[in-house]
Each structure stands twice: as C-alpha cells, then as structure tokens.
C-alpha cells in the first residue's frame, strides 16, 4: 500500500492540469464567472454545462465569457450574446415562450392529471355503502 499516496499524487496532478487558471481582479467577478458557466450549456456535449465540458468550443466560450466579464459586461449582456448566436438552447433555464410552454408547464399538467386520477380511484375504492342487490341473498 506504499504506492497509494504516490498514485493519489499523480492523479491530483492530472486533475490540476485540466483546470484553466483565470485571474480575476475582483472575487465578485469570479463568482459571477462560475455562476454563468454553470448556467450555460455546451452545445457539443449537450448534457454538460460550459463549466463541465472539455470540448474545444466550451473552452472558447468560457474564455469569451471571461473576456466579456473583464470588459465590464453585465450577466444579462453575456447571456444575450450567447443566445443571439446559439439560441435558447444554451440556457439550462430557457425563458417561458410559446415554444417552451409545454416544457415549463408539462410537469404540472402531468401532476394535475395524476392527482385527478388518484383522487377518482380513491373515491371509487372507499368503503361504499353495501349495495342492496348484492347483499340481499
């Protein structure tokens, strides 16, 4: 088991090599940066955020977000920049529009339907008053 610490060391080294080092003049900017890249979706690996993805494009878009932050752009301006190029798809929380209405309201509709079905089932199975035509014999 003597090799275990060595292995751990090698693995941390590898992990660190994958992380981009970015300098922020203000810790607030850094928080905003991390928040933004968590909220934006990578278009290459569609189930990963910009923060998670190692794709080339994600790297480019991260540096684009970084440059825009340093240039003093607001979060909304940065998000708009990406949406105007890649569409609402880059947002993990797309805005409520006619095209996304089903996406936002669908779960609630399904839940309401489920609740209605459950309610009707329960009402039907609840102890009924004994029916005279069954019990009279």
């Amino acid at each position: 088991m003597r090799w275990l610490p060595i292995l751990a060391l090698v693995l941390t080294g590898l992990a660190l090599a994958g992380v981009e080092v970015r300098q922020f003049p203000d810790p607030k900017l850094e928080t905003r940066y991390h928040h933004l890249i968590e909220e934006l979706r990578c278009l290459v690996c569609q189930n990963q955020s910009l923060a998670d993805s190692n794709a080339d494009l994600a790297e480019d878009l991260r540096s684009e977000v970084y440059t825009m932050l340093l240039a003093g752009k607001s979060d909304q301006e940065i998000v708009d920049f990406l949406v105007s190029r890649y569409g609402d798809f880059v947002l993990y929380r797309p805005p409520l529009k006619t095209t996304t209405a089903l996406l936002w309201l669908g779960p609630f509709i399904a839940m309401a339907l489920g609740a209605l079905t459950l309610w009707r089932l329960i009402r039907r199975r609840s102890p009924n008053p004994p029916r005279p035509d069954i019990n009279d014999s």
Partner: peptide
C-alpha cells in the same frame, strides 16, 4: 483561425 467568426455564426460543430 481562432474561431471567433465561428462563434458569431453560432457554429458548434
């Protein structure tokens, strides 16, 4: 070369 125009055109692949 740096893919900046690509970003403006929304290129992702």
């Amino acid at each position: 070369g740096d893919g900046k125009a690509g970003i403006d055109y929304g290129v992702y692949g």
